[in-house]
Design a protein around this nucleic acid. Sequence first.
DNA 1: AAATAATTATGTTATAGAGCACAAATATAC
DNA 2: GTATATTTGTGCTCTATAACATAATTATTT
Lengths: 232, 232
Amino acid sequence: MIKSALEKVVSEDLAAIWTILEGEEKRRIIDAFTLHTFRKNQIVYAEGENPDHLWVLLKGKVKIFKDGIGGRQQILRLIRPVQYFGYRAYFAREPYVSSASAFESSTLGSLPMSLVEELMHGNNKLAWFFIHELSRNLGGSDTKIVNLTQKHIRGRLAEALIVLKDNYGYEDDDSTLRIYMSREDLANLSNMTTSNAIRTLSGFVAEKIITVDGRRIRILNEQMLRKISKFG
Amino acid sequence: MIKSALEKVVSEDLAAIWTILEGEEKRRIIDAFTLHTFRKNQIVYAEGENPDHLWVLLKGKVKIFKDGIGGRQQILRLIRPVQYFGYRAYFAREPYVSSASAFESSTLGSLPMSLVEELMHGNNKLAWFFIHELSRNLGGSDTKIVNLTQKHIRGRLAEALIVLKDNYGYEDDDSTLRIYMSREDLANLSNMTTSNAIRTLSGFVAEKIITVDGRRIRILNEQMLRKISKFG
DNA sequence: AAATAATTATGTTATAGAGCACAAATATAC
DNA sequence: GTATATTTGTGCTCTATAACATAATTATTT
């Protein structure tokens, strides 16, 4: 059971980073790999803790966030299958500066970072995988700084909806976001209060840019949303 | 002249990443290395351009920033000698998402990223250098997101002053910041208008936390500044 | 199924900080 | 050394958004 889940990860090309390993190395990975299930809202790791595992999301959704002033939370990144996370702090030789928790019940895998590091030394491609990921994330964070500080509420919420679409996509109807999140999380993603997330969302509904049915959000006019995100 | 500046870089332990190279490799670096001088406010690279060089600041001060809504600029990072920058976008295979310019007249070196990348493939330590740098920067950016979005003006300015101190240090009197920047740049660092940077700075002076003489800022009570930065 | 808790919705008020205007002081150019 | 431009300083107004309050839904627990 554990092995089969790993075989899936190892074989899928999304997880191509392990396919380059062979023989002995692959065996060591398989032996060290551990499967975990997390329930909705369960914490994977918390800010301040010491990082020692590489995490991979196999099924479900995970958010990386930071608790700020007065319990206000900022969502920094969204994780989808099959993405890796939890390694940055280890590489920086510092405690986690953010936390990770499951949005919905999820299946994760973990590997000891010490093993990952060791394999990276003998395997340059593995190192390049992380260089690429870190570089993309850093660009994303730098962009987020300006988006969150300079855009107005409408722009920030529009941006958040686009981010949700880009991360989790649409359902079969090609318009319903494939993630159902609370208004509070939506607010935490776009740096505003829950009230304002609700209000602004209603505004978009009134303008026929989206449709809302509980937590199901259908995007009627993605073009317009991108426009608002850009200039709003 | 060019060679001697490089010898300095190559030999100093701050630039230890090159000391691990030897013979042929070191020669190739020396041949490809180019010296540049930039005048105050001169652009090193601009957002949207394609990255093809690794930059190293040898003397002076450089800011990494992003132009936002209505020409409002956000300073993302400060560079001091001997720090490397400009590589993130190349590794991410995307255009620059930010720009770099000299704060004051500065001396920089550059190396083609293609050469750096090539050497990294044969030299794991070089790869690790960038993994470490990227990881630290990403942690910094994630923290900045929350600092800039959730702290109040006083907290953000106090934080900015601490950042200046941590980056460029004090002069011989152990209290004057070793960087003189315009109120506007101070504002761009802490996400506020120039007026508010001036006003808040005056507030700190009135509270005897700092002293201001034109662009010279003396920090009288660093402890208090850290406190304001943390809770303000 | 009833009771309790959490989330969503909407209205009202308060305020941090932006925006603007103008004067004084510095720096830069001619 | 005078003229012009830029930066700094301060007061005033305005507004985007937080904060708070309360009701209506919707989930969750017992």
